[in-house]
């Protein structure tokens, strides 16, 4: 089953930064209201920059793959930079063009990130 391109498939099967942090500086859990998928994101900050990211998800391949891909983009960014990560940046990092009905799955992780940093 390789509907979503190599990159999402790889990240969904082998998620990077999956798990939890012992002392997170920010935690947020969000739900995709359409399907009930659930994703929790934790961040550790050092000197105002993201030092570590962990996520846990009960979600589809697109949600998990996108969360994993996003988690690799974040380390080193300042809080302001992380807040400013756009949907276009995430969607263009997925290595495939998602169909309209699945874009919401990919953006769940970004919404949770923005809520965690709000």
């Amino acid at each position: 089953m390789n509907l979503y391109g190599e990159k999402i498939a790889d990240h969904a099967k082998h998620p990077r930064n999956q798990g939890s942090l012992e002392r997170p500086d920010a935690t947020h859990e969000g739900v995709n209201p359409l399907c009930g998928d659930r994703l929790r994101l934790q961040l550790q900050l050092v000197d105002g920059r993201i030092a570590a990211v962990r996520f846990q998800a009960e979600a589809c391949m697109v949600s998990i793959g996108a969360a994993s891909i996003l988690s690799e983009l974040l380390p080193g960014l300042s809080v302001a930079e992380a807040r400013a990560v756009s949907r276009e940046t995430l969607l263009s990092s997925l290595g495939t063009e998602l169909r309209p009905s699945r874009i919401g799955c990919a953006l769940l992780s970004l919404q949770v990130l923005q809520a965690a940093l709000a």
């Binding site: 089953m1 979503y4 399907c35 979600a59 589809c60 391949m61 697109v62 799955c105």
Partner: peptide
């Protein structure tokens, strides 16, 4: 081992 959305997307193929 497969999320329902992924099953549905696969069936759409």
């Amino acid at each position: 081992g497969a999320h329902p959305h992924d099953v549905a997307a696969s069936l759409d193929q």
